[in-house]
């Protein structure tokens, strides 16, 4: 849902970031308003996950330029946990396993941290169990997963569902879902997409990172962006994704060549297509 007057939740300007002195993001521009669903696509290694981790504050990445405003505030100043508490959520492409830490306990602590920030009272064990059971329904997950250690021994698809469950509990304002669709079977894809749609509202926004149209068939994006070599090369509406499905990414090389030949500035401002 595009409303030009909706408040800007996330405003990324010329964001540059590096890992161990190796530049990866080379000037990303992206504006996300309340109520919008964005999709970011692009070849393997183009920097999509890097963008998402920089937004979430992963310590391995150094921001070397640009700025990110979250509801008008400098997001980059916040610790990762503060970012989560104020409503930024990252669904990881590869969620880590944490042996020994109970999933239920983990979810409860995380939920209460977010609630505290929102000014809600802390949920005790019982109230939380009620809540978690209700939210489990969103992803149709077996309560047995609550008793296990965080992601330990979970299958690829189970890990992704666990990510959406966390999203359902934390009720973020901006959810970044990094390839949440990969590893899901067909039913699970429907369930997860249904969950994302259910959680989407005029007040929040979603950034989907994906390689496939099949997810976008289920979650209709308002904007689609193509990332290449650490920047957003092209932006458009939902038809851009369909076009990519037909043409692939070959045009990206030409575009990059053109940029390298001198049209740097053109690359900074996303080109509208269609």
């Amino acid at each position: 849902m595009i409303r030009p007057d909706a408040p800007v939740l996330l405003d990324i300007r010329d964001l540059q970031a590096a890992v161990e002195d190796q530049p990866i993001l080379k000037g990303v521009n992206l504006t996300i308003r309340a109520g919008e669903i964005h999709a970011v696509m692009g070849r393997n290694g183009s920097g999509k996950s890097t963008l998402s981790k920089v937004l979430a504050g992963h310590p391995a990445y150094t921001v070397t330029g640009g700025r990110v405003l979250y509801k008008g505030e400098n997001l980059l100043e916040f610790d990762p946990e503060q970012r989560a508490c104020i409503g930024l959520f990252l669904g990881f492409q590869y969620p880590v396993e944490i042996p020994g830490v109970s999933n239920l306990e983990f979810l409860r602590v995380a939920t209460n941290a977010r609630r505290a920030e929102q000014g809600f009272e802390e949920l005790d064990t019982f109230a939380f169990e009620d809540l978690v059971r209700e939210r489990l329904a969103v992803v149709q997950m077996d309560p047995a997963f609550l008793e296990r250690s965080v992601n330990e021994g979970f299958s690829g698809g189970e890990k992704k569902r666990n990510e959406i469950l966390q999203m359902a509990l934390l009720e973020p304002l901006v959810a970044i879902l990094d390839e949440t669709d990969s590893g899901l079977d067909i039913d699970a894809l429907r369930i997860v997409a249904g969950g994302v749609n259910q959680l989407a509202s005029p007040d929040n926004a979603t950034l989907l990172i994906t390689h496939y149209q099949r997810l976008l068939d289920l979650i209709t994006p308002d904007h689609v962006h193509v990332m290449a070599a650490g920047r957003i090369l092209r932006s458009g509406g939902k038809e851009l994704a369909l076009e990519l499905e037909r043409t692939g990414y070959d045009w990206v090389d030409q575009e990059l060549d053109r940029l390298a030949a001198g049209g740097q500035e053109a690359g900074r401002t996303p080109v509208e297509v269609g």
Partner: peptide, 15 residues
Amino acid sequence: SEDQLFYLQSRGIGF
């Protein structure tokens, strides 16, 4: 590990 810590932090749990 840094990744495990970051995962917990990214869910709002203090360091």
